[in-house]
Design a protein around this nucleic acid. Structure first.
Lengths: 233, 233
DNA sequence: TTTGACTATAAGTATATACATATTAATCTG
DNA sequence: CAGATTAATATGTATATACTTATAGTCAAA
């Protein structure tokens, strides 16, 4: 039994998946190496490589040089979720977008922010609070700190036309970011800004972005009740 | 100017990134096609392809056959987040894991669940409520519906040793899933189960998984206050 | 003006070959 | 026998070449 012809990396991938699902290759087990599979599937090793690499990226296979490829023991599924610019997210739903700057000043950040931003004690950062509205209703508000040293020009930037996020995305390249998602309980401040009741559960995204030399910005986005973030795999 | 030698896909990727960041190639603009870039970078087209494909996967480039490759106009950043099995998540933090089945029965689901599960009216599903504890304290509870038609053997499965999720992961291959993340306000039921106060904001994950023929299961995970999901790019 | 066929083009992919690199396993040495 | 050295090996990658496929653009027919 040669195993038939699998002359596209997708078909190879499908066959590998089938064998994993059918428990022909069990979790934790090594599967044959690329050369053998190429022979079995009657295709080039590069084709097998492409298929296995893609599966490894989804977390279903573990691969290591010399050691080989094994079926992941605990398949940690990886979902990719898109982080859109809020304006596009709102306009994408067919709603009108507007945003207002609630406050903007230069200030020494609290210690939590200072730690995130990796700045020295006493250094002032730009602090910006903005509200984004969908069809005139509060959608999310952002409490943002920006390191002006990493962003020359931010002091004089007009952040009423474009939101700070859009301005930054357009003007400051970044190399990495970290995101965390959580829930909080609306206090008086959140209730007032988002026009919701105190005590409601709110969805929160904390995000920092950096380049090779600085943490550029750190923002907390607090969404109005009912917000959902969605993804598929 | 030939542009020098870029003989690894990573170096090509880095150079493309640099040009995007330096605004040599502006958002929305088409960049030269693969053949031209290969010539400029003095490497094979396959190498350019690999580099550009990877950038397209992160959302920084838009590619279409015949049309070409352009710098994404609104760079929707894509974060990949790992969805672990709860036991591993808890044990990974060095805490002890335990779970209990609060209820298990066969019932006709409410219409919202029926829509998600795509079952006929009147069809009974397995309904399971479980609580996962970290160091003995409530961590998350799951309200889960399983389609027994898609999962032969679920009726007789022992779900006290392994949690339903672990059992399903180990026994039922799935092909796709959808996830949504939101926040809710703790009502009396959540407060009691999670041992928290009514009115606290709770993080919620709704997840469905399916194979080619059925929606296998649909679960709502409601986390105790303080939970955070984290990812980096 | 719309519809539909045609064509040129750019990405997408397959393949053979060759070499690079990480890492294990075997072997040698002090 | 511990530690260093070396060989073997599986994945990782680069390249030239050839073919496939989706589709933007064009041009003509309805």
């Amino acid at each position: 039994m040669s195993g038939g012809d699998f002359n596209s990396w997708q078909s190879v991938q499908a066959e590998v998946l089938r064998r994993i699902n059918a428990r022909e290759w069990k979790p934790g087990e090594f599967i044959p190496n690329e050369a053998e599979l190429a022979l079995k599937f009657n295709c080039a090793r590069a084709t097998v490589n492409r298929a296995l690499r893609a599966l490894a990226e989804t977390g279903l296979l573990d691969r290591r040089r010399k050691a080989g490829t094994r079926v992941a023991l605990n398949p940690v599924r990886k979902a990719t979720l898109a982080i859109p610019v809020i304006r596009y997210e709102i306009e994408g739903k067919g709603q009108s977008y507007r945003h207002t700057v609630l406050s903007r000043k230069s200030a020494v950040p609290p210690s939590g922010i200072r730690a995130r931003m990796r700045t020295e004690p006493g250094v002032k950062l730009t602090h910006l609070v903005t509200l984004h509205l969908a069809d005139g209703k509060p959608y999310v508000f952002g409490d943002r700190w920006i390191n002006p040293e990493a962003v020359p020009g931010i002091e004089s930037a007009d952040l009423t036309a474009k939101s700070a996020n859009e301005w930054l995305v357009a003007n400051v390249p970044f190399e990495g970011g970290d995101f965390s998602f959580s829930a909080m309980t609306a206090g008086p401040r959140e209730a007032e800004i988002l026009a919701c009741k105190e005590g409601e559960g709110l969805f929160v995204i904390d995000r920092s972005t950096w380049n090779s030399t600085h943490v550029i910005t750190s923002v907390r986005l607090t969404f109005a009740p009912g917000y959902r973030m969605h993804t598929e795999i």
